[in-house]
C-alpha cells in the first residue's frame, strides 16, 4: 500500500538517509527501530510530509505523493511530546483538523464525541491539556490524529515520556486499537522490547540505512549484522574457534576452553571447522525460550 523507493536525505554535508527502500502493507503495524540519530524520525517526517527528501519517491496505492504537503497527505502523526495545543481544550484540539477540512458542525460534533468515547475520555472534553496526566494527554494526541480517519497513522516514540507501567499498558492498548481499526501504523521507537512486542514487522535502522526488515521473531533470532544483534541486546563479545556444526547450531571453543553452542548466520559455503569467530552472547528478553543464546557472526 505504501511504498518508499530510494528515499534519501542529505543536509549540507552529512547524509541523514541513504536510499531507503520499504514497502508497508495495509493494516500492518510496522516499527522503525534504531538508536537516536539513526534517521528513523527523519524517515517518518518525510513520510508525513513535514520534511522533504532530497531524492526518491513515495507511492501510496501506486500514486506518487512525495510532492504533496503534509496537509494534503492522508496521514496523521502522533508526536513524541504529544504536542497538544496548550491554548485549546481537549475538544478543540481534537476538532482542529476537522475544522480545517470545513466539515459541517454536526459532522465535527459527532466525530469528536465518537472518538472521545472510543478512548473513554468523554468527560475530559472541556479540560485544558496542562491538566491532563501523561497517559491522558497521549490518548488525546492519538485521538486528535485518528479523528481525521487517516490511511496511515504515524507515531513518533509516542510512549517514551510515560513511566514503565503506563507504557506497558499503553502498548497493549495501542496494539488492540490498531487491530480493531485495521489501520496501518508506522511506529518509531528506540526501545527494542516495545518494537518486538507490538509490531507485525520491524525495520532496523542504523546511520541512515535500513539494515534489516523482518518479523520480530526473525529479527530477534537471526539478526543479520553485528549492529542488529548488539542493538537487540547482545552484550558479550567473545572470540573463539569453531569446533562443531550440527544442523543450525554451532559449537565454539572459547579461549579459556569452555564451549558455547548457539545459532549462527554464516553462509554454509564459507564455513569451515577451525575458523575463528566473533561470538555474541545475550540474555533472553522476550519469548522466554532461551536462557542464553549464542550466535556467531564473522566480521565483514
Amino acid at each position: 500500500m505504501l511504498e518508499i523507493l530510494n528515499i534519501g536525505k542529505s543536509f549540507s554535508r552529512q547524509t541523514a538517509l541513504k536510499s531507503v527502500n520499504l514497502s508497508i502493507a495495509e493494516g500492518e503495524f510496522f516499527s522503525l527501530l534504531g538508536p537516536s540519530g539513526c534517521g528513523k524520525t527523519t524517515l517518518m517526517r518525510i513520510i508525513a510530509g513535514l520534511e522533504s527528501a532530497t531524492e526518491g519517491r513515495i507511492l501510496l496505492n501506486g500514486e506518487r505523493i512525495e510532492h504533496l504537503q503534509a496537509a494534503e497527505r492522508p496521514f496523521n502523526m502522533v508526536f513524541q511530546k504529544y504536542s497538544l495545543f496548550p491554548h485549546m481544550t481537549v475538544g478543540q484540539n481534537i476538532a482542529y483538523g476537522l475544522n480545517l477540512k470545513k466539515l459541517s458542525k454536526d459532522e465535527i460534533e459527532g466525530r469528536v464525541a465518537e472518538i472521545l468515547s472510543l478512548f473513554e475520555m468523554s468527560d475530559f472534553r472541556q479540560r485544558m491539556p496542562e491538566t491532563l496526566s501523561g497517559g491522558q494527554a497521549q490518548r488525546v494526541a492519538i485521538a486528535r490524529a485518528l479523528v481525521n480517519r487517516p490511511k496511515v497513522l504515524l507515531l513518533d516514540e509516542p510512549l517514551s515520556a510515560l513511566d514503565q507501567k503506563l507504557r506497558e499498558h499503553m502498548q497493549k492498548e495501542l496494539r488492540t486499537l490498531q487491530q480493531k481499526l485495521g489501520l496501518t501504523f508506522i511506529y518509531v521507537t528506540h526501545d527494542q522490547e516495545e518494537a518486538l512486542i507490538m509490531s507485525d514487522r520491524i525495520g532496523i535502522m542504523n546511520k541512515g540505512e535500513l539494515v534489516q526488515v523482518s518479523s520480530p521473531r526473525e529479527i530477534y533470532e537471526n539478526p543479520e549484522t553485528i549492529f542488529a544483534s548488539q542493538f537487540l541486546g547482545a552484550t558479550s563479545l567473545l572470540q573463539g574457534e569453531l569446533v562443531e556444526i550440527s544442523q543450525d547450531l554451532a559449537t565454539v571453543r572459547l579461549s579459556d576452553g569452555s564451549l558455547v553452542r548457539g545459532k549462527f548466520n554464516i553462509p554454509s559455503d564459507q564455513i569451515r571447522l577451525g575458523m575463528s569467530l566473533d561470538t555474541y552472547v545475550r540474555k533472553a528478553m522476550v519469548f522466554n525460550r532461551l536462557e542464553s543464546q549464542v550466535f556467531g557472526i564473522r566480521d565483514k
Binding site: 503534509a70 502523526m77 513524541q80 511530546k81 482542529y96 480545517l100
Partner: peptide, 18 residues
C-alpha cells in the same frame, strides 16, 4: 514555543497562515 506544535498543526491540515 515547541516547534512540534507547528508540525502538529501542519500535519492536521493547516497552512502557514492558518
Amino acid at each position: 514555543l515547541d516547534p512540534s506544535l507547528e508540525d502538529a498543526a501542519r500535519d492536521l491540515g493547516a497552512g502557514e497562515w492558518t
